[in-house]
Every structure is written in structure tokens, then in C-alpha cells.
């Protein structure tokens, strides 16, 4: 199965995903820039992505915990989700998300 991830420069990447993996883990595994500093514990909101509006209804609703963490996202939009809280499954094959500016890691020092 696959997901499509648009990076901070607007380039779309097609990534191979595995069932049961968190979308954050797929993005990180393919070395696209995502901070994800708490490592998937729904505790930092630095794996924030914008979900393509067509795909939004296919996701389970955000838990109270995820909503609470989304409160700490300064660039939140109605289609904001934490990618560590989206588990890959057959229904999400082809999911499209865009990396959020607030989840961008610091650029490596020169």
C-alpha cells in the first residue's frame, strides 16, 4: 500500500507503507522532514500534517487526547491531524497528506 506526502516545497512523494504502521513512522522511515519529537506518544504535536479533504472522512475521528494536542499546533487547520495517530490499513491505501510547517525539523547546521 502507498501514501502520498507533499513536502514543504510542494513536491509530492509516493511512499510505500506497511499495514499497522503509523503514518508518522512511514514519513520518518522514508526520511522526509518531520520532527515527531515525542516518538509517537501523542504528546508533542510535532508530527502535524494536513490531510487531503477527500481523505478526511475515511479517518477515524481524532481522540480527545489528539484534539488536546492539536491545541498546541500554531498553524492548525480544519484538516489538521497528528500523523502518529493515523494507523495504516487497507482503507487508507493511497492516503494523501501534506507536511505542516510547524512540524518541520530545524535545518542542519551549516
Amino acid at each position: 500500500m502507498k501514501i502520498f506526502v507533499t513536502d514543504h516545497d510542494g513536491v509530492e512523494h509516493e511512499l510505500e507503507a506497511l499495514e499497522g504502521w503509523r503514518v508518522m513512522e512511514v514519513i520518518r522511515d522514508w526520511e522526509l522532514p518531520i520532527k515527531a519529537e515525542c516518538g509517537g506518544a501523542c504528546s508533542c504535536a510535532t508530527c502535524h500534517v494536513f490531510v487531503d479533504p477527500e481523505w478526511l472522512p475515511k479517518l477515524h475521528e481524532a481522540s480527545d487526547e489528539e484534539e488536546d494536542m492539536l491545541d498546541t499546533v500554531p498553524d492548525v487547520e480544519p484538516n489538521s491531524r497528528l500523523s502518529c495517530q493515523i494507523l495504516m490499513s487497507e482503507e487508507l491505501d493511497g492516503l494523501k497528506v501534506r507536511l505542516a510547517p510547524s512540524a518541520k525539523p530545524e535545518t542542519a547546521a551549516a
Binding site: 520532527k35 519529537e37 508533542c44 504535536a45 510535532t46 491545541d71 498546541t72 499546533v73 500554531p74 530545524e106
Partner: peptide, 9 residues
């Protein structure tokens, strides 16, 4: 603005 903390090098 109170959006919590994040880590910076």
C-alpha cells in the same frame, strides 16, 4: 501565544 514547548538544538 501559549502553544506549549518544543525542542530546539
Amino acid at each position: 501565544p501559549f502553544f506549549g514547548l518544543t525542542m530546539k538544538l
